[in-house]
């Protein structure tokens, strides 16, 4: 029997569960390697070559090179592992989070100052009801 994943209907959200962790194992471990300064330097020097040392899928490598964080997450990346990548780039959590929303940095920062994104309409995909609603 398949596992119950009640979180699957939450819009704009990928829950890093055991299936995602399995898919993203090497992507996330690559990110971990960037916690060492010598690895950061080597990665910055030739990103593609560094990535080719890891048994990641080509789609994962392309997503890293494009710094497409939504795609990395879809392919099994987790934000706390990916943090090593954007930290290597000198980017913050807020910069990276904004990049995933399609908003400009300024608009995202202003949204946070105004109290953040409202949960209204964001709890589940439109038209969906969840088991806990019934």
């Amino acid at each position: 029997m398949a596992l119950d994943k009640p979180y699957a209907d939450i819009p704009g959200t990928v829950i890093f569960d055991a299936d995602q962790a399995r898919k993203g194992y090497h992507l996330n471990q690559f990110c971990m390697s960037l916690m060492k300064p010598e690895n950061r330097a080597r990665f910055k020097q030739d990103q593609r070559r560094y990535l080719d040392e890891w048994p990641m899928t080509d789609a994962q490598k392309q997503a890293v090179l494009a710094r497409d964080y939504n795609r990395m997450i879809e392919l099994g990346g987790n934000i706390y592992f990916l943090a090593k990548l954007f930290s290597t780039d000198g980017r913050s959590f807020q910069y990276t989070a904004a990049s995933m929303t399609g908003m400009t940095q300024e608009a995202y920062a202003q949204m946070m100052l105004s109290g953040g994104r409202s949960p209204e309409g964001m709890r589940r995909a439109a038209g969906q009801t969840s088991p806990e609603d019934r």
Binding site: T13, A98, T101, M111, R117, S118, P119
Partner: peptide
């Protein structure tokens, strides 16, 4: 407390909750 760091729903805050 409330926060979401990933995906298009990033930035979610729920002060009431």
């Amino acid at each position: 407390m409330s926060h979401q760091l990933q995906g298009p729903r990033a930035g979610l805050i729920n002060q009431e909750w």
